[in-house]
Nucleic acid binder design. Structure first.
Length: 263
DNA sequence: GGCCAGGGTAGAA
DNA sequence: TTCTACCATGGC
């Protein structure tokens, strides 16, 4: 059991800001979250946030407990357009999720909606994941090696079926993650875009929600709407503007903004 | 019944 | 490099 200062760790804000799909509310600010083959319950108790789990080292890293978020919020508080997000989403923490799980999950997220994404991922786990106590693990890459496009389609993934086949193949290739980790953000983004089903937006999500690369700005339809002006009239223009404006803190800014827009 | 959902791809200009 | 049609599915 991990006990942490609740001021900068809100389970609800962290899990419902759109960075993760495998979680469920079991009460007021009380959640079950699954990552890879592990499970944790996260809830608030007075001024504290508690993580109840079997593998504390894993979830301490997963919830990014070594990072000082008061410093991040202080840095971003000079931007008036983020004030609402910083207030509502003060307890957001950017997760360090499993790489392959994040890649496949965000391929499924493309042109899709959150309830359906969660359902597809649940069916994927139930069909190909190892059975645990009361849930299924996210499938390992080796468990997905022989899965065909038709198999994926049977889960309801639609046109993303072939993307998942190609992505699994690429992820299994030797040292793919190491190569990404060795590159700067731009290089890593380009390499991720060679994975089938991964374009710029999904690549940014993978970099931010799995690899702790914060100089990215995933520009989805919602974020685009909130920044759109006469001159910033395409998602790519918004993305470049925000990268320049927020720098290394762009990913955090994006999450606070997203939570404010949707929460 | 059309639109939208945390978009990406292939092909064209 | 930027633009367009197309892609499955479900909820509204």
């Amino acid at each position: 059991m991990i006990v942490f200062d609740g001021k900068y760790f809100c389970p609800k804000a962290t899990l419902e800001c759109g960075q993760v799909f495998r979680y469920a509310a079991v009460g007021e600010n009380d959640y079950i979250v699954r990552s890879s083959g592990l499970s944790a319950r996260v809830f608030t108790r007075g001024d504290e946030t508690v993580i109840d789990c079997d593998d504390e080292e894993y979830f301490a890293r997963y919830f990014d407990l070594d990072t000082d978020y008061s410093q991040i919020i202080s840095r971003l508080s000079s931007f008036p357009e983020l004030s609402s997000g910083l207030e509502k989403g003060r307890g957001i923490r950017i997760l360090k999720q499993d790489f392959a799980e994040t890649v496949l999950s965000f391929i499924i997220s493309a042109n899709n909606n959150i309830p359906r994404i969660k359902g597809i991922i649940e069916r994927l786990c139930a069909r190909y994941g190892e059975k645990k106590d009361g849930y299924f693990a996210f499938p390992t890459l080796s468990a997905l090696k022989e899965v065909t496009a038709a198999d994926y389609r049977a889960l309801g993934v639609g046109f993303r079926d072939k993307y998942l086949v190609g992505a699994t193949e690429k992820l299994l290739s030797d040292g793919f993650l190491d190569r990404i980790a060795s590159l700067d953000v731009d290089g890593a983004r380009k390499l991720l875009c060679t994975v089938s089903g991964v374009g710029g937006k999904v690549a940014d999500c993978i970099l931010l929600f799995s690899l702790a690369r914060t100089a990215v700005f995933p520009t989805d339809t919602w974020i685009f709407k909130t920044y759109r002006t006469e001159t910033l009239d395409t998602p790519e223009k918004v993305r470049k503007y925000c990268l320049d404006r927020y720098g290394e803190y762009a990913g955090y800014a994006q999450q606070y903004r997203f939570y404010a827009a949707r929460g």
